[in-house]
């Protein structure tokens, strides 16, 4: 038995050989399918990873611009609006909804941002001064948050794909390195057992036929001896000899028939 893979506990029969062959075929198809899935996912994964890298850099820039626009606000308002903003926040205007995308049978959620209409907590903030800056700052931040949401979907997809790819690869490897060799081993085993049986049977039959040949030879010898005896007797008593031959003819055909039968059985 080769390596640690072992083989399955089956009786080495022709039926289980058929089963194993089917199984091997199935495993090979499954393997190639999973392999393709894993490749598709990995492709996607690499793309996402690259996009995450890009998006993170972009986020750095976007957030910087946003922070700067907040600085403009504090310049224009001439004071701190942080507390007021925190207190007047009530309803989220900016929300996300989850969508799903199917990549090779894996459901990847992606977030989509939308703004809830009619919710505006800060409409009058900066009424006296700085209103325009605040408005602009809100837009800048809203855009920044959109980038963030995009990044968040990428990141979630990244985590899920990472997980799924691990699972798929584990399966691929399991099939490749365990199931297929094992099934192959089993098939080999069954084949070797069957061959063994064949050989045994062949040997047995050879023995049987040998024995039969011996028997036939012995019988022939006996008949020959009998014939000689009869010929001798006929020479001594011709009358008896003229009666005897037909009977002997029949007997000899019978013996031949038996031999033929034996051959058929071989």
């Amino acid at each position: 038995m080769s390596g640690a893979v072992g083989r399955e506990a089956v009786f080495p029969t022709r039926q289980s050989l058929g089963l194993m062959k089917n199984k091997l075929k199935g495993a090979e198809i499954g393997h190639s399918l999973l392999k393709r899935k894993s490749e598709a996912l990995t492709k996607r994964f690499r793309e996402i990873t690259r996009r995450i890298d890009e998006a993170k850099q972009k986020m750095g820039r976007v957030m910087q611009i946003a922070a700067f626009s907040l600085a403009e606000v504090s310049y224009a308002v001439g004071g701190d609006i942080g507390y007021q903003i925190q207190e007047s926040a009530k309803q989220a205007r900016f929300r996300v909804r989850a969508k799903q995308e199917n990549v090779s049978g894996v459901l990847l959620p992606s977030f989509e941002s939308y703004t809830q209409d009619g919710v505006n907590d800060f409409g009058l903030t900066g009424l006296g001064k700085g209103g325009q800056q605040i408005q602009r700052c809100r837009e800048t931040y809203a855009r920044a948050v959109e980038t963030l949401v995009e990044l968040a979907s990428l990141q979630t997809a990244f985590l899920i794909l990472d997980e799924v790819i691990k699972v798929v690869n584990r399966r691929v490897n399991a099939i490749e390195h365990v199931i297929i060799p094992r099934t192959e081993n089993t098939i080999k085993y069954i084949n070797s057992e069957l061959d063994e049986l064949d050989r045994e049977e062949f040997y047995r039959l050879k023995k049987v036929s040998g024995k039969k040949k011996r028997d036939v030879a012995a019988a022939d010898a006996a008949i020959l001896a009998a014939r000689q005896r009869a010929a001798e007797e006929q020479a001594a008593n011709p009358e008896a000899a003229s009666k005897a031959p037909p009977a002997k003819e029949e007997e000899s055909t019978d013996v031949l028939g038996e031999n033929e039968d034996n051959d058929v059985i071989f």
Binding site: A89, F94, T115, A144
Partner: peptide
């Protein structure tokens, strides 16, 4: 800033 964007 993020609250201004309306996430609060």
């Amino acid at each position: 800033g993020l609250l201004l964007a309306g996430i609060g």
